[in-house]
Write a protein that binds this DNA or RNA. Structure first.
Lengths: 238, 238
DNA sequence: GTCTATACCCCGATAGAC
DNA sequence: GTCTATCGGGGTATAGAC
């Protein structure tokens, strides 16, 4: 893509226009993110965005088709940022399964505490009247990807009386297989869902203020929780 | 409080007025509950309530001081219903710790799945701009009360390197002590918080649709989760 | 691509007549 | 206790001029 001077003027009209468009989109999304913290996703308003960035209320429709589409783009952006975060943390951490898993969980919680409203947008109560389109699924799975294939994630197999549980977790096993990881036993998939639930539950209870009055500092308790999960799910043997 | 005929007419004016008032309050709260499912707590509207029950928009202010107060009364109502539910379930169940705890957790989840919007009001993402008053604390603790004093709730003690975790859980131990239960060790309070997190995490991930595509049936998985918690936290020995 | 203007809605809260 | 009227906001979305 080397341009000779004859090919185009130093600033081609297309490029300049595109730059302006990109900048406008950036401003819209940034303003919407700010609004998210103010009034929450359910009361996001396109007009408030236009007021915020100083354009006419109708101007925004050149960039965003509707309020719902704006929400979708916010979700994509948030999942993208959180996905980047956990990926970078995974790369920076030691490769053993125990460290990888604890890094993932602490990164998730740290990010949730630092961006509670963004977290709520994707993992909080669903927004009534809004249904996330299919396009949000892939970015969502990326957040969990770093721990999907961790070896040794299971302290024990499911018992013969837990066949129904094992069967119900087949889809997750299929996802793991499709991601080019070692096949996961029912004990593994069950352990993953359990650990996932425990982490999300702790984070959401903490964000909701439900620990106030029952817990002094939350960091050490979460840390102990992770240590137990690592031990109980056999991750420390790797 | 026996009334002779001379004391008051068959229907005293006070009583009739009070009955009408009660009925009106009932209608307001019922309509608001319906709205909760439609638009969510963030967009609850007093005007919509008045439209719904067929009175002038200003009439509602004789019964509710403000939108925030209506939300507070909804929260109190929801905690009340959920508290009744878990209490009744606890009474109907066998008294051993394992059964009591599993009953509590399954009742919680069943209620959440049956009343997802009511559940979200009290355990979902906080409503931006609204802060729950102190009066909501007691009804909230009643929901957890049935499992506060369960004996044997701890598989193991916290280690000496987990002193900070133990210290952080002191407030919970104090709550338990104040409720006339056996003193709870740090291992017990930690186990309680862990179990609580796991249950809430599962419920909220399920309600958020985050299990779709990864889990077929959720009931057996939750059941297995509870069995493991009971075993790991030493509840089955009682 | 931005603007004004517009159609047609929504809201919380209060004043004052009945 | 309920009403009408009102103040002073808010919103989605489109049409059409520039």
């Amino acid at each position: 893509m080397i341009k000779t001077p004859a090919d185009s003027p130093p600033e081609s009209p297309t490029t300049a226009r595109q730059l302006a468009r990109d900048e406008m989109e950036r401003r819209i999304l940034a303003s919407a993110r700010r609004q998210l913290a103010d009034v929450g996703p359910a009361r996001l308003s396109l007009r408030a965005v236009t007021r915020d960035i100083g354009v006419a209320s109708s101007a925004v429709y050149r960039y965003v088709a509707s309020r719902d589409e704006l929400i979708t783009r916010l979700i994509l952006q948030v999942f993208g940022e959180l996905g980047d975060e956990v990926e970078q943390a995974a790369e920076a951490a030691a490769p053993d399964a125990a460290t990888q898993w604890r890094t993932w969980a602490t990164t998730l919680r740290r990010w949730a505490l630092d961006h509670p409203f963004d977290w709520a947008l994707v993992y909080g109560t669903p927004i009534p009247g809004y249904t996330a389109p299919q396009a949000t699924i892939d970015p969502a799975t990326r957040v969990n990807a770093p721990v999907l294939g961790l070896p040794g994630f299971a302290a024990e197999d499911l018992g013969p009386d837990e066949a129904e549980t094992a069967a119900s977790l087949q889809p997750l096993a299929e996802i793991i297989r499709a991601s080019d990881h070692e096949p996961a036993s029912p004990g593994t998939t069950f352990a993953m869902m359990t650990a996932w639930s425990a982490v999300h539950g702790f984070i959401n209870l903490e964000l909701g203020g439900h620990f106030v009055g029952a817990m002094e500092k939350t960091d050490p308790v979460f840390d102990t929780l992770l240590r137990r999960l690592v031990r109980d799910f056999g991750l420390e043997r790797t």
